[in-house]
Design a protein around this nucleic acid. Structure first.
Length: 725
DNA sequence: AATATCCGTATTTTT
DNA sequence: TACGGATATT
């Protein structure tokens, strides 16, 4: 049964899709139908008889995996299409999590570990740092975020601490010994507390592969491994793939060296370049036909890349002719940029391009701050991706800390956080209470669970908050089903009762659910997850109402959290999913008063990877923004920024706008200079600009007078008018 | 010992 | 600015 959908592929795509056994490297330029090719490959493999659950599809986000798998399902048709859902799909981290729940015990990792995010890791480092007395030196010691950055870079690049410090963090070199001591304790403590961080997930997966018998069992689960965005994987991830393919040779990786933008996460294009030598006999297929963008947009994008220090040989081609060049708009300042974006967005909306087919892209999360205000003012609904996450907000972290304690009573960081919410409890008392509970003796200790102790034989409460203290005990008791307070008597959850709650707004919460697996043990008396969240919320809300300035928005967030919880079968899978695949912030200013389906997409360039829009607006194309000031100290950094701009431009299908504000007003760190003149991005040199249609926004034309001065003159004139004849 | 206040400094991208 | 960290105050 030669599937008809195969005919729609071009020869290169078809070769990739129908390739037989052995390693395959697909170099896929932007917009060359990479996603479709992967989806077809999955469908093809299934049609050729590979059981779906013997296919492993590793992607950069969970959403990408879900999309490809559902596309594959549609290609196969009704009968088997549903089976595509059984494909193992997700990020390296999510798959590692799932495998470790199954095989972890074989390497000494209890299956009920909890996963720390970067913030938690930083908190734990901080805890250790202050215990070691390193926080109080006369000279300042690297801060917690820096510590995590150093640690993560060292681990992910599989590099030596000394080398990382020398190259990346030279100012921390004097503290080398202290840093090493913290890392030592940090590693030890994670094991004791039965927690793992992001990096551990990868490291332990890799270690799992090396265990003699178990390693083979893990690897042999999969007939085929497919990896997307291979240019953005790091050394450990490459090592994992080698470990997973010791005996079997079916592996396909897809990537584009020109789109490598995650070196800050230790990603290296060496992975792509070295693939053929790591997997001898690799077949290489190159996709160069672009189906996304018009030729003028592609020409401009190619021109940007042509300036790269390292040359990339691919030149993308498009058959989509157009007279419309991309447009470069010079604006007087950021305010005018905002206005111009809004105007253009509305213009295209009126001409029939819905908001959700338009995207606004920028380098850093906060670059859209002013635009967000303007969009709200004009009542244009939008949704922002990237930037600060829902999950990073203090109140959400607090809520999760409660749940984490219930899940893992030795989770020191969470106890520390929760206890300090109580009146009269600061760092000192929190530590004392944790010591009395035995939190710090670690999971291996034979003592009763600290949680049980807290409920049944609590340590003396702080004088100031006796009442709150007891309330907290009741809350935790209720949530574990030990409630003496007669809370809702738990009904056993109907397992696999199919209907997950109506799509909560978790990004990519659909087809693939490797996180929400069936390995969770049911706890006999526990109330349902949503009831637990509700219970915690009722306890917590009064506390943060006194803690935070505007609790209204935070209450909304927490209610939303509760709703999201409804979509998960177990507390454990809920916590893990939030950690590994956090929903993007939804506390938009532009909450549509009436239900609008259509919304404009705002996104960091990093988060826009793999996406496309009919109309793309790239803002802040000024030197210092793109490339970011942070990145210009070395040539490799500048090159990566160039690729970033390339990625942004190649998201556009029909129309591309690039905006450049002439002035930036900074009441930044210094008083004094009110504004400064920006340079256009160095990547948009004369040669590139010739491929643009250039426009000057109204206010930028008469830029001889600084605006402020002119307004002053106006006011003075008006004042004079009051008393002059 | 907890909390209020002040000061200095960094400043991106994400699993 | 905004946040973390250190110092002052309760």
């Amino acid at each position: 049964m030669a599937a008809s959908w195969l005919d729609k592929l071009n020869p290169a795509q078809r070769e990739a899709v129908t390739y037989g056994d052995g390693p395959l490297l697909v170099i896929a330029g932007a917009g060359t139908g990479k996603t479709g090719t992967l989806a077809c490959r999955v469908a093809w493999l299934i049609e050729k008889g590979t059981p779906p659950d013997r296919i492993l599809l590793l992607t950069f986000t969970r959403r990408a995996a879900a999309e490809m798998i559902s596309r594959a399902g549609r290609l196969i048709g009704k009968a088997e299409g549903g089976a595509a859902g059984r494909v193992w799909g997700g990020t390296f981290h999510a798959v590692a999590n799932r495998l470790l729940r199954m095989y972890g015990p074989a390497i000494g990792l209890p299956a009920n570990f909890t996963v720390m995010d970067q913030g938690d890791a930083a908190d734990m480092m901080n805890l250790i740092r202050s215990e070691l007395g390193l926080a109080r030196g006369r000279k300042r010691f690297p801060r917690k975020d820096t510590l995590v950055a150093i640690y993560s870079r060292t681990v992910n690049a599989r590099d030596r601490l000394d080398h990382v410090l020398e190259v990346q963090f030279p100012w921390c070199q004097p503290d080398r010994e202290g840093i090493a001591a913290i890392f030592d304790l940090y590693t030890q403590r994670k094991r004791e507390r039965n927690v793992v961080d992001y990096d551990d997930l990868l490291l332990l997966w890799s270690a799992l592969c090396r265990v003699p018998r178990i390693g083979d069992a893990v690897a042999d689960r999969f007939d085929h491994i497919l990896v997307d965005e291979y240019q953005d994987t790091n050394a450990i991830q490459a090592e994992i793939l080698l470990g997973m393919r010791k005996n079997r040779r079916n592996i396909m990786v897809v990537g584009d060296d020109a789109q490598s933008i995650y070196s800050f996460r230790a990603a290296t294009i060496r992975n792509i370049l070295d693939f053929p030598s790591q997997f001898p006999g690799t077949r290489i297929v190159t996709l160069e036909q672009n189906y996304r963008s018009t030729q003028p947009i592609l020409a401009a994008s190619n021109a940007v890349m042509a300036g790269a220090k390292e040359r990339y040989t691919k030149e993308l081609r498009s058959d989509r002719a157009s007279d419309q060049k991309p447009v470069l708009i010079t604006c007087r300042d950021e305010a005018e940029q905002c206005a111009a974006v809004c105007d253009n967005v509305m213009k295209h909306l009126e001409r029939g391009t819905p908001l959700r087919r338009q995207g606004v892209l920028f380098r850093a999360g906060h670059h859209s701050d002013q635009l967000e205000v303007e969009l709200s003012r004009r009542k244009i609904p939008f949704h922002k991706y990237g930037g600060l996450k829902f999950i990073e907000a203090a109140h959400i972290k607090d809520m999760l800390a409660f749940l984490r304690i219930l899940e893992n009573p030795f989770d020191e960081v969470s106890w520390f956080r929760v206890l300090q919410l109580l009146d009269g409890v600061g760092p000192r008392s929190a530590r004392r209470i944790m010591d009395l509970l035995g939190v710090r003796q670690g999971a291996a200790a034979t003592v009763a669970s600290p949680l049980k102790r807290f409920i049944e034989e609590p340590p003396p409460a702080p004088a100031a908050g006796k009442e709150q203290f007891d309330k907290l005990r009741n809350v935790l008791a209720d949530c574990t089903g030990q409630g003496a307070t007669g809370g809702v008597r738990p009904k056993r959850k109907a397992k696999g009762s199919g209907a997950r709650a109506p799509a909560a707004p978790v990004a990519g919460d659909s087809a693939v659910s490797p996180l929400d697996d069936d390995t969770e043990p049911e706890r006999a008396n526990e109330p349902p997850l949503t009831a637990q969240v509700e219970r915690i919320r009722l306890f917590y809300e009064p506390i943060f109402e006194r803690l935070y300035e505007n609790p209204a928005m935070r209450i909304r967030d927490i209610e939303q959290l509760q709703q999201i919880a409804g979509g998960y079968r177990s507390r454990s899978s809920f916590i893990t999913a939030l950690t590994l695949d956090p929903p993007t912030s939804t506390s938009d200013l532009a909450q549509p008063p009436y239900l609008e389906e259509d919304y404009l997409v705002l996104s960091t360039i990093h988060s826009a990877k793999g996406c496309e829009w009919d109309v793309v607006h790239i803002i802040h194309a000024a030197d210092g923004m793109i490339p970011s000031d942070m990145a210009v100290s070395d040539a490799a950094g500048v090159d990566e920024e160039r690729r970033l701009l390339y990625v942004a431009m190649t998201r556009a299908k029909d129309m591309l706008y690039v905006y450049f504000p002439l002035r930036y007003y900074h009441a930044r760190f210094t008083m004094g200079d009110r504004h400064s003149y920006a340079q256009i991005s160095r990547f948009l040199d004369g040669k590139v600009r010739r491929l643009f249609e250039t426009r000057i926004a109204a206010g930028a034309r008469d830029d001889d007078f600084p605006v402020a001065a002119r307004s002053m003159q106006d006011v003075e004139k008006w004042l004079q008018g009051l008393w002059k004849k």
